[in-house]
Each structure stands twice: as structure tokens, then as C-alpha cells.
Nucleic acid binder design. Sequence first.
DNA 1: AATTTCTTTCACAAAATTTTGAAAGTTCGA
DNA 2: TCGAACTTTCAAAATTTTGTGAAAGAAATT
Lengths: 168, 168
Amino acid sequence: MELLEARQKFIEAWGKLGSEWGINRTMAQVHALLLISPDALTTEEIMEQLSISRGNANMTLRDLIGWGLIEKQHRPGERKEYFFADKDVWNIARQVAKERRKRELEPVIKILDELSKVKGDEKDPSYRTFNKSITDINKLAKNVDKTFETMLKADESWFWGSILKVFK
Amino acid sequence: MELLEARQKFIEAWGKLGSEWGINRTMAQVHALLLISPDALTTEEIMEQLSISRGNANMTLRDLIGWGLIEKQHRPGERKEYFFADKDVWNIARQVAKERRKRELEPVIKILDELSKVKGDEKDPSYRTFNKSITDINKLAKNVDKTFETMLKADESWFWGSILKVFK
DNA sequence: AATTTCTTTCACAAAATTTTGAAAGTTCGA
DNA sequence: TCGAACTTTCAAAATTTTGTGAAAGAAATT
């Protein structure tokens, strides 16, 4: 396989994976492109390589910055903005975990906490089932949350070292 | 908060969470409804409680069976089918992990393995960056895959016991 | 202050996904 | 074999999500 074909395949695969996990396909593709680009790229270059519009490129780049996955770079004597992706996959994983935790897991935990407090008739099967499911899900969610938190604090070698020891 | 309101809130929250993680909103809602229902429900009852069409209910229920999250039940003397959800959240988590691993993670790992094999000029920064990113992502993906695998084999208390020991 | 260069915005268009509902299919009992 | 009860299918409609492009905005240069 040629490098150019391989790059294209990676961009497609990354985009597909992203969309399956609730991340906009284009955003994942722009991220993929920057991941395999040695140098920072301009909006123009990204638009051209992925055949997307200026508006789309701009918004997507801004979102990626919001996710902490890429950064703007400036070059002395140039007005254009360049975009560059952190290439450390451990950082990427942590950053995604951090954002999704904040945006999606935490709001759900907040609701589950509220729902856990709902009182009802212990003799009512409807209440008992509701309460048991909510309580159990809440516990699991909090364990996941805790795991994320630890992952965010941990450094890579420590994290995988510990995990792999458990799973040996 | 009243039980009925709380049930409604849970169904909405579960649906929203699902859609944020790439799972059809209605599917998550049907699952939520069955999770808090003490008894198995008919298609009719599900249609009514969630205000969805027969076609939608039927397809969604079939999908949920495909995910291994609910099962059909039959009652002696009745033609109707009843649907019942496993209430064990650990089983649910494992089942979802199992399916997503098979459907999404494995295909990506297959592609990454191929892409890892692509040869190129070690002096070409474009090749070097591509190769490093692919290799690193592949390693992470395989670690995640391994973690899933262990999770699928493990029983709950062992799993969390081990994790929490690591994270103490 | 006018021009050039680049970035951002946003109403609208296009595409992708989800839902509907009616017809076709199936199963079983009379 | 007929028909009632129930399930499945799928083309079309509705909805949601994503993308476009032209215009407006901003910043540096002349």
C-alpha cells in the first residue's frame, strides 16, 4: 500500500470510528489529518485535502481546540493561522475522557443522584424496580467516573503498569 | 418528585446519554423503560408509553435483542410477545462493551494492523509521522481491547476489587 | 481611510438518520 | 381453509445533523 492511500484510509477509518461514538465525522477526520501531518496546516490546506468548505473547516477547528486536541500556531511575519495536533496518544485519550466526562457523564450522575432520592412505597413493585435500577446504575456510573478521574491524574506508564498487573 | 415524573426523567436522560454515545435515542429509551418495569411489556404497551409507532417499536426491540440487552418472553395461552430487560447493570455494561468491541473496535484494529505494515522512506517526515501515530494508536487500541476482554471474562466483584485496589 | 488578507458567522441547503403506517407475512385455532 | 391476532417489512415522510458559501468582521498594511 502506498503512503498516500494509507493516509486516506486512516482518515476514513478515524472518521467512521468517531461517528460511531458520537463525534462528528468531519471533526474526527480533521483530527486524523493533523495527527499524521508532521507540520501544522492552514485552514486552506485542510479544506483542500478533505474537500470541505471554509465554514465547516473553521467551525470544526474551533471545536477541536475546544476539545483540547489541537492548537493554533502563528508564524512570525505571517497572518495565517496554522493548526497543529498533539501527537501523544495518551494525552489524546485523556483529553477525550476528560471532556466526555465533563460534558456527558457528570450531568447524568447529577440526574441519577436526584432520582436516587425519590421516595415511594416499598410495597410497590414499580417503585422497587425503579429504585433498584437507578441505585445500581448510579453506583456503576460513579465507578466509571472514579476510573476516569484516576486516569486523568495518572501518567501513562503508571496507569498501564497497574492495569496490566491486574489483568496479567 | 413523583415516581411517574422520575421514571420519565430517567427515560429521557438515558435516551440522551445513548444518543451522545452513538446509540439511537429511541433504543436507549425503550431499554430504559424496560429497565424500570418490574414485569415484561408487550409491544403495544411500549408503543403507548413512549408514543412511538409499531414499526419503530418492533425494529428497536429487535435491535435490543441483537445487543443482548432484552429478551422475548411468552406466556402460556397467549400469542403476544413480552419483552423483558436484564436488570443487572454489570451484565448490561459487559454486554454493551462486548458488542461495541466486536462491531467497532475490532474492525479498526484490523485496519490499524494493515496500516502499521505500510513501508516508506524513513527520511520522509510525512512517513515518519504517519508511522509513529499509527503505531501508537494501534498500541492503545490493543490495550483497550485487552481491557475489554478481561472485563468480559471477569466477574463483577473481582473486576472492581482489582480496579479499586489499583486506584486506592 | 482604503485595500488586502484572513477569520468568523449564519441562513439556507444537503445529507444522513430516524420514524411512520399501511400492507404483507406469519401463526394458530375453529 | 378461513380468519383473527399478532409480527414484520419497507417506501416514503419527518426530523435531526451536518455542511456550504457568501457576506460581514477583524487585523494588519499601504
